[in-house]
Amino acid sequence: MAKVLVVTSGKGGVGKTTSTAALGAALAQGGQSVVVVDFDVGLRNLDLVMGAERRVVFDLINVVQGVAKLPQALIRDKRLENLWLLPASQTRDKDALTDEGVGRVIAELRSRFDWILCDSPAGIERGATLAMRFADEAVIVTNPEVSSVRDSDRIIGMLDSKTVRAERGERVEKHVLITRYDPARAARGEMLNIDDILEILATPLIGIIPESQDVLKASNVGTPVTLNNAESAPARAYIDAARRLMGEEVAMVVPAERKGFMNRLLGRRAA
């Protein structure tokens, strides 16, 4: 059974697109057939993070409006043959997307793929509500920071009221993905800790992605971080999160502070 998963957050810049690309690639590496769909009409970036920016011919709006057929707009990943991208339009605006049109495209994608990952735009307006509209599951990308947690709370409220599932009285299965987690700052009490975030949002955790240079390096070269350096800490965290999405039991690893030599010498406690 195909699953539609929206990657959303409310707040911008928290890592939705990076996470969509990384989770999509990790699911595909796990043998699933996956399509990542960019809903950020007018500000598309998933193509760039996936390294497919020069291969875009048709986009989601063309398919919604019947200008192109779905197979014409789908771009196959060069590294993984079971990973596909449906890009957003860069020139049109979000008003070109209709509820009914998006529903039709999602239904067609459901018949072709195991996973449909919808990369939501920031905000709580039309683009974001359409990205979540047909979702079965949601990954709420949250930074350990007050404004991000507040916006995540708002988005969780919308997932519980504005989706097709919610309207039918069913649940959208929600997961919190914490990104840009800095263990050293968390240990010093400068950053909201994970238990606090989960308690406030009352939503289960799917993964903790540590702040890392590897994420930027991967997007620089247009490769999902799970493909670019599968051994890096963020890649391992994304791969674990993807395995949890597939229903596997994987122990949660809280990124730990790598103590510097001086700190260890002085026996400084990280409390």
Partner: peptide, 24 residues
């Protein structure tokens, strides 16, 4: 006291809890 000299995370948590209770 436990979080160190200038731990701001507990403040962040309390502010969020109050705000979200109101907004919800």
């Amino acid at each position: 006291l436990f979080g160190g000299r200038n731990a701001s995370a507990p403040v962040a948590r309390e502010r969020l809890q109050i705000l979200l209770a109101h907004e919800r």
